[in-house]
């Protein structure tokens, strides 16, 4: 009898700490899709395992849901890159030149834009086609690429959401070489108007 009680208690405890399924997780993320704009500051830390070297980049990002996405780097090199479904534009202060790549010529632009949009607005359905999704804790989603193109570069991509599931807090890319890229977001704002100059390249 005591053994039975212990077993039942253990099962109850197990039930209490069970991780949500992908569907449940997706349901929790649904409110994120209601956001029309997202703005945040970010810090990107690249860790080169073999060299034991970290390279840190800081900047800001702005997204108009489903329309366009801007990453503005402030240190160590000032640069701006703007993604839309049709093109990718990059400007940097050093060369003061803008490079434009059309999605019609490089279809992966569209795919990258779509992916970034998907994880920023918590839409897991499209991600399920390209990644094996695994919930590693209450707020963390681990994505293992299924398609060859992504597999070539990344072993996993881990997204950590805020506890209230309103924002992405951290994205960790683990490369095949063991190097990592960690993107940490802070001061996230939702549905605030994005200044028009954000989309203008110098």
């Amino acid at each position: 009898m005591p053994a039975l009680i212990v077993t039942l208690l253990f099962m109850l405890a197990l039930h209490a700490t069970a991780l949500p399924t992908v569907e449940e997780f997706a349901a929790r993320l649904k409110p994120m899709a209601q956001n029309t704009t997202i703005q945040a500051e970010y810090t990107q830390t690249r860790h080169f395992k073999e060299l034991d070297f970290n390279a840190v980049t800081t900047g800001a990002m702005a997204q108009e849901q489903g329309k366009r996405l801007a990453w503005t780097t402030t240190t160590p090199l000032k640069s701006i890159c703007i993604f839309t479904e049709d093109s990718f534009q990059f400007w940097d202060e050093e060369s003061k030149r803008t490079t434009t790549i059309k999605a019609s010529r490089f279809p992966w632009i569209k795919m990258i834009f779509q992916l970034q949009t998907n994880w920023m607005n918590g839409d897991l359905a499209p991600l399920q086609k390209l990644f094996q999704l695994e919930i590693t804790d209450d707020v963390t989603l681990c994505m293992t690429p299924l398609d060859q193109a992504t597999k070539l570069f990344f072993s996993t991509i881990t997204i950590t959401f805020s506890e209230d599931f309103t924002t992405v807090r951290k994205v960790l890319f683990t490369e095949k070489t063991g190097d990592t890229i960690e993107l940490v977001f802070k001061n996230t704002q939702y549905n605030a108007p994005i200044p028009p100059q954000t989309w203008r390249l110098p």
Binding site: A55, T57, W71, K176, D179
Partner: peptide
């Protein structure tokens, strides 16, 4: 090296 610095500025871009 200049190109490398630009690539490093791009978010989530592998540079191996």
């Amino acid at each position: 090296v200049a190109n490398l610095r630009k690539a490093m500025a791009l978010p989530g871009t592998p540079i191996d």
